[in-house]
Simulated scan of single mutants.
Amino acid sequence: MAFTLAPTAVTDGYRLAEHDTIGSTNAEALDLARAGDAGRLWVVSKNQQGGRGRRGRAWQSPPGNLAATLLVVADYELKLASTLGFVAGLALADALDAVVPNGNIAVGIDAGRGVGNNSRNRFELKWPNDVLASGAKMAGILLESTMLGEGRFAVAVGIGVNVIAHPQDLPYPATSLRALGAACDAETLFLALSDAWADNARLWSEGRGLAAIRNRWLERAAGIGSEVAVRIDNRVVRGIFETIDEDCRFVIRDHDGGVVKVAAGDVHFGAVASASAV
């Protein structure tokens, strides 16, 4: 089965570049941007051999998992581009809801709970860039950018999903669609993802709809009201995860009652957050 775009994505002007094998979908997308591609291009493969996660970490992706990158070329305020990760998380969660049959996929204790301890979401979003199922990481999102000149820039919105397999040697739990009993393949998931992205991108509307995206994200957020530890460079901030603010920063109420707003950092919930070191 070949990768295909949803009709909604085609109508909105998105294109597709499919690869049997690729080093990195993000790297390919940014190379295409530097060569003059206008964006709205999905670069996809189910055999990515050189993927990477945040902070230069390797992203393990055995054949059969989904590696997809959307190339965005724009000239709006660059800081708005960082919120595309929240659009991507919502799109992927919506896509997973669409392709995975109803079942008992719950959020585990170490992932915390959604708003008001609402556990109706089978797939939840962990700030800033993970999608969880059963408290375990199923997918990661990585945004990378490059300046193109004349006020324009390119953003590669990379989405890696554990479809048929997940890493076993991580310091946190991970899972895959197959491990959860879902028979969905990478092509079917991507079809749903391209449709869900089109919907959420229209809502985001180049940042004009960020408040609506934030509200939707909070409805799926893992860990609100839970004990949390965030590693920021060489220090760890501990407290209760309260919300994300209007700029999508992570908001913690620390143990002294103060408010800490985090723009970037590694987040740990539950038992890991309560440990003496992260």
Results as ranks from 00 to 15, higher is better:
P173S: 10
I141Y: 00
G53H: 08
A264I: 15
F123D: 01
T21E: 09
D247A: 14
E242V: 13
F190R: 06
D169P: 03
A111P: 01
A6L: 11
G56I: 12
G151S: 03
A222E: 01
P171M: 11
G108T: 10
P101D: 02
A196W: 01
G223A: 14
P167L: 09
H19F: 15
V278M: 09
S61L: 08
C184W: 03
E246M: 13
K137F: 10
S61Y: 00
L80M: 12
L125N: 03
A27I: 11
L71P: 01
R57D: 07
G151H: 04
P7I: 13
E144Q: 14
R238I: 08
S176K: 11
V10C: 03
V237E: 12
E206W: 03
G103R: 14
G23S: 11
D20Y: 00
N102A: 11
A33Y: 10
T11W: 05
N234S: 15
D233F: 08
A58T: 15
V237A: 07
I224F: 10
Y14N: 03
L143T: 01
P63W: 02
V272C: 10
T25P: 00
V278K: 00
E28W: 06
N162H: 08
R15L: 07
G140I: 10
C248A: 15
S176H: 10
V99P: 02
G36M: 05
L180C: 06
K126C: 08
N102E: 09
L84H: 12
D245G: 06
Q168N: 11
R57E: 08
A179D: 14
E242A: 12
G207K: 05
A81N: 06
S226R: 07
W197K: 00
A273H: 04
L170M: 15
N129M: 13
N104T: 13
R249P: 04
E242S: 12
E124F: 04
C248D: 06
L84T: 09
V251M: 05
R54D: 03
G257S: 02
I105F: 11
L218R: 13
T25G: 00
N215A: 15
P173H: 10
A106D: 09
L193P: 00
K126I: 13
A139R: 07
V107T: 15
L96Q: 04
V87C: 08
K79N: 10
S276E: 07
N117C: 12
A196I: 08
R113D: 05
F190W: 09
A74T: 14
L41N: 01
I164E: 11
N162S: 08
R208C: 06
V230Y: 02
G207T: 11
E124M: 15
R208G: 05
A183R: 12
L80P: 01
I164S: 13
G103K: 10
D169C: 08
A95S: 05
P101G: 02
L30H: 06
R214E: 02
T83P: 00
I105L: 11
